[in-house]
């Protein structure tokens, strides 16, 4: 845990802005088992946080705390300086979470799913939806029911939520699962794009990030 604080502190010195996302002595637990405690760090705009660690170390728990699905037993998460429990609506508007479940309806087509996600986040521009489908390599499959897509295609479609919502904070739980090399390159390019546009990314992934531009903006946290 100490090493983690140091790396984050170093990364913060290089960043100009004060941290937009701040985690203050947070404790996470599953059942009665404490997974991590007194975890503190901050993330500024343009930074990527890569959370690593063995299975069951609390990576998903931490992500669910960051997006507000889970209330930490102790400590708090601040977004723009405010506790996310108090100012939940701003945090939710500016945050997109992609969990390990895709959140897609199998009985709707790829296009309908993406349209629904776009409408719910206030995007009515069909051009954005079309562009996202092309970018994700799903243009030819847009009228297929999601139940008929492969696992990798479904994952791509789930990540399409990032492109139609345009939030500041992206929280991604194993975004590269089931995705092929091409798809991975596309997604990494989008991550770089997002970071360059002053976005923040928090992700868990078993594989190291391959792109050099991502690595230079990346802070790694290892949960034990």
């Amino acid at each position: 845990m100490n090493t983690l604080k140091n790396t984050v502190a170093e990364a913060q010195q290089t960043a100009l802005d004060p941290p937009t996302l701040r985690v203050e002595s947070v404790q996470g637990a599953r059942g009665d088992r404490v997974l991590f405690s007194s975890l503190s760090f901050g993330l500024s705009r343009g930074q990527l946080l890569h959370i690593t660690g063995p299975n069951g170390c609390g990576k998903t728990t931490l992500l669910r705390i960051l997006c507000g699905l889970l209330t930490p037993l102790e400590g708090m998460v601040r977004w723009h300086g405010h506790d996310i429990r108090g100012s939940a609506s701003i945090h939710r508007r500016e945050c997109t979470y992609i969990g390990h479940r895709d959140g897609l309806k199998a009985e709707l087509t790829a296009l309908e799913n993406l349209q629904f996600n776009a409408r719910m986040s206030g995007c009515r521009d069909n051009g954005v939806i079309d562009d996202s489908l092309r970018l994700l390599g799903l243009w030819e499959y847009q009228d297929l029911l999601v139940g008929h897509l492969s696992a990798g295609q479904r994952r791509r479609l789930a990540l399409g939520r990032l492109l139609v919502k345009r939030a500041i904070l992206w929280i991604l739980d194993e975004p590269f699962t089931a995705i092929d090399v091409d798809g991975r390159d596309v997604i990494e390019a989008q991550l770089i794009n997002h970071l360059q546009g002053d976005g923040i990314v928090v992700l868990t992934s078993h594989q190291a990030l391959s792109h050099p531009q991502l690595r230079e903006r990346c802070v790694t946290v290892s949960l034990q």
């Binding site: 997006c67 699905l69 939710r92 979470y97 390990h100 479940r101 959140g103 719910m120 986040s121």
Partner: peptide
Amino acid sequence: RSDYEDGSLEQLVLSEH
């Protein structure tokens, strides 16, 4: 039920509405 199982429900809970 089905929204819970496929993960749509957590997306709805996290929606800005």
